[in-house]
Write a protein that binds this DNA or RNA. Structure first.
Lengths: 383, 383
DNA sequence: TGAGTTAGTAAACTCTACTAACAATTAAAG
DNA sequence: CTTTAATTGTTAGTAGAGTTTACTAACTCA
């Protein structure tokens, strides 16, 4: 059980290193290199990794046996010496399931390939919004998705609303009225596949970290029914002391009051930034004498508020990248510009700007792809 | 999708794992266990680490040869079986140099033992405040400190003001008018000892992480001439995209203006929190009709401002611990209480409170000890 | 005194990566 | 066209790290 060994290594802190752990790491290194740099020969891998050709040959033959890599035939490069045999990661021969439970009233899943391309989609409309019922729908959807795969599956990745601990237990998810739901174990039991469960914003930041510009210090803010975020610090996802890193929706912003939030406080980020709040404010703006200008004010103010909350985080962590994910028609333009501008105003000004602010390339599928990335990392050490 | 990045480990280029790396890790594990849990037998180590008694015996004999551990003789525990031979880390037989360059007009160094106790102090008053001159004083002080050691030295740790990159180069340090000073290499060349250089607040957070309550997700805010901080995220120090993590002095706080800062912006954290700013405000308070009450207001407001800046950071990272370091007479009481209270008000209220707020136990020597801890980590894998 | 228990060590085996040597194959030099 | 050099990938043998198995040493308990 390769998967279990990997988990043991990451879960237990201070575990002793066995020779086989080193081997696993080197296997990951081979997969990583092929995955990111593309097909190459064993000799080239050897030079890249600093291992001998002999060792690389051995690692590659191991990966060939497992189906993780494939031989592509001779390189057509023209030079003296024996022609090289190209080896590549098995891009079509392995697949992953990604699930996104954070959409409004629909559960989504997809079959993806190792490059994060979505090959097939499956959806389930939420018939009943809470409790065990949702869990059962998730399990059913997972079964359906696995049945659609056309190649061996590496595992399942899930992005769910709520707080998820390191063992894949959803501690609390108010939307579904979940409390301590062991989603990972349930899915693993149902499907027999290695499974990883994270908060939806955490999954999303994995996607953006892997497929985007890829700063190793970044934050992704996901704006939907609520406001959540995922952070990558020093190349690793921040989990937090209580597995609640990224939960910024109910941080008070500014020092001048604000709308009362359902959480009981005033001026929470969510009261300014969530999609429902924004839509409400925009509806009010539309009823004014100058609807366009009023709408711009609403969006600009929301952007400013987000930047006010983010500035200390960006400053303290020296983040290189801030990514917003959500409805493009709301975020693009005045809101994004306001975030960018306010952030610079509130940080020590530098040239060139130390932090780039942008929208997520693909907000629609970002959780699905991020969930898949988590599996790739865990199972292959790739991404 | 083709923009997949190379996520190989950053510690070493082409970081393939060799069997000897695993060995080194396991040696560190032994040292760590002894360092934190105290003397124990080989058999007990074996049970703790999950390695066999045979392997632990081998590791221990290796460490005995290196002088890293010592045998203390038989345990006096009364139970059946052969009596255990206690092994402990060589607490008196190895020493470390710590240096604190962040004090006002004085450079401090010390010889410390492996438990972080200060055995001997050396100081140099800064004769000329800037440039190469300071560098030379630092080098001279290091030589003096190494001469005071009474046991083999593991290395030198330095906490300096300014921004320090991962290679120990002080990129910028306005106080000393330094720019790209390769302090690590200079010290290494001068003393022949392994050397580590970090920002002073970063060094401090290492000390507090090691000797304090020890949450793996914490921030230490160091209040002195300026305001700086060091963050531990997931048990590792956050470095940031430009090695500038922790630089929060010039983040704008709140949405209601504030005093003009020397950096050109208004409402920077430093204008509220730095020791000079606080002392100025307290002097003004002393001139009012109710000096005590006015002083309390000053301190309370400063605490509130700090909490306003910290709240998004604590929330986003789900920090378990906030530690303040600086002059106790300023920080204790109204200021600390205000930080605590304001932080809770601005975060999602929970029971019990997810974050503990406190003062650093030993603000005086925190940088010296933190600098020493960095060496212990680096050389022994201990702390 | 003998049975049971625990600590530490020695020998043999496995796994990992290394060095050395070699066969296969091709380009370029003479 | 032959020779030389370059390059890839494999086989054989070796060193290091950790394991299992089996042992000795030394103690408690009855």
């Amino acid at each position: 059980m390769e998967a279990l060994r990997d988990l043991r290594r990451t879960d237990r802190t201070g575990a002793a290193t066995l020779p086989s752990d080193g081997r696993a790491h080197n296997l990951s290194l081979v997969r990583q290199t092929l995955h990111s740099a593309g097909a190459m020969s064993r000799a080239e891998l050897s030079r890249t990794l600093g291992l001998t050709r002999v060792t690389v040959s051995d690692l590659v033959s191991d990966l060939l046996d497992r189906g993780h890599v494939v031989e592509l035939g001779q390189s057509d490069e023209v030079r003296p010496g024996k022609p090289a045999i190209l080896v590549d990661i098995n891009r079509r021969g392995l697949q992953v399931i990604g699930m996104d439970l954070a959409e409004n009233s629909v559960l989504r899943a997809a079959v993806l390939d190792l490059d994060g391309n979505i090959l097939e989609r499956v959806e389930q409309t939420l018939t009943e919004g809470t409790g065990e019922h949702v869990v059962n729908q998730v399990l059913a959807l997972a079964s359906e998705a696995t049945a659609r795969a056309t190649a061996p599956l590496l595992g399942i990745g899930v992005g769910t609303p709520g707080i998820v601990n390191a063992r894949g237990v959803v501690t609390t998810a108010p939307n579904f009225d979940w409390k301590d739901v062991a989603l990972r174990d349930l899915l693993q039991e149902r499907t027999g596949l290695p499974t990883l469960v994270s908060n939806d914003a955490d999954a999303a930041v994995h996607a953006e970290h892997t497929f985007g510009a890829g700063s190793d210090d970044m934050v992704l803010v996901k704006i939907g029914r609520g406001v959540g975020s995922g952070l990558i610090v020093g190349g690793r996802r921040a989990r937090g002391a209580h597995s609640a890193a990224g939960e910024i929706g109910h941080v008070t912003v500014g020092t001048d009051g604000g709308t009362l939030c359902k959480c009981g406080k005033a001026g929470c980020l969510e009261t300014w930034m969530s999609v429902p709040s924004l839509e409400r404010s925009l509806a009010e703006a539309a009823a004014t004498s100058e609807p366009q200008a009023a709408a711009d004010v609403v969006l600009r103010e929301a952007g400013e508020r987000l930047a006010i909350a983010l500035a200390p985080v960006v400053g303290a962590l020296d983040l290189g990248e801030v990514v917003l994910s959500g409805p493009r028609e709301l975020l693009e333009g005045p809101l994004l510009n306001a975030v960018q501008q306010t952030l610079l105003e509130r940080l020590l000004r530098q040239d060139p700007s130390p932090v780039s602010v942008r929208l997520a390339a693909d907000a629609q599928d970002i959780v699905l792809r991020g969930a898949a990335v988590m599996v790739l990392w865990n199972q292959l050490g790739v991404a």
